[in-house]
Design a protein around this nucleic acid. Structure first.
Lengths: 107, 107
DNA sequence: CGCACTCGCAACCTTAAAGTTGCATATTGA
DNA sequence: TCAATATGCAACTTTAAGGTTGCGAGTGCG
């Protein structure tokens, strides 16, 4: 079965926990792109974009492949599913807790 | 319809993007609890726990109610669903992008 | 070939996150 | 009532995140 590691999950959520990184993800949803192409609409340096991409790569959310003189970045669909599964697990536990509470309170 | 704001979402993910906060969430899944009860198994100060809880409250992930001399904290199921919905939206866009890519590549 | 383009590396700055310590305040049980 | 309990408030330290600038290196078009 699937057992999400809390530390890995934390890193994954942290990777999504930044405004600019979320915008990068949204941009990557439209398809793979190079660094300069990704930073087009942004008001940050190319280096900042690079840093964000590496943070996300470290968490496994994104991967890169060298292609000639530019590096192509794309989303890692599996990791996104990991996050969703982790949230589902939390939600389920929470629902169970609520159910137990209702039983106790007997309202 | 539901339109998740990227900035709000970022704050929400950031709230989950910390090892100790994730452990707090896991603990809160078992039911509401007070601050000292929450920090029981942790190796951090009560004040640190308080700070984490407030970060999560600011993102709407958790809420608190004063009850006598202790404050009871519990999860906010609605916000959890918000995160899940946002991820679903991202995943869907990503799936669409993949579909488009397959059409282009014509493999 | 040479120049423009795309990127990596490294140093640096600024700010905020994570955590601690110390003290004040309110509540409750004996 | 009084002390123990449970929390809040504030100042402080340390570390890392987010961002910038400068420079060097590989790649490809004209």
């Amino acid at each position: 079965m699937f057992a999400p590691h809390p530390l890995d999950s934390a890193r994954l959520f942290a990777a999504l926990g930044d405004r600019n990184r979320l915008r990068l993800v949204a941009r990557l949803c439209k398809g793979p792109a190079s660094i300069t192409a990704l930073g087009e609409g942004f008001h940050i340096t190319r280096q900042a974009v690079t840093k964000h991409l590496r943070v996300m790569r470290k968490s496994g959310l994104v991967r890169s492949t060298r292609r000639g003189r530019h590096t192509i970045w794309q989303l890692n669909e599996h990791r996104l599913q990991d996050v969703r599964r982790y949230l589902d697990l939390i939600s389920k536990q929470w629902d169970d807790a609520l159910a137990r509470l209702r039983t106790f309170v007997e309202r």
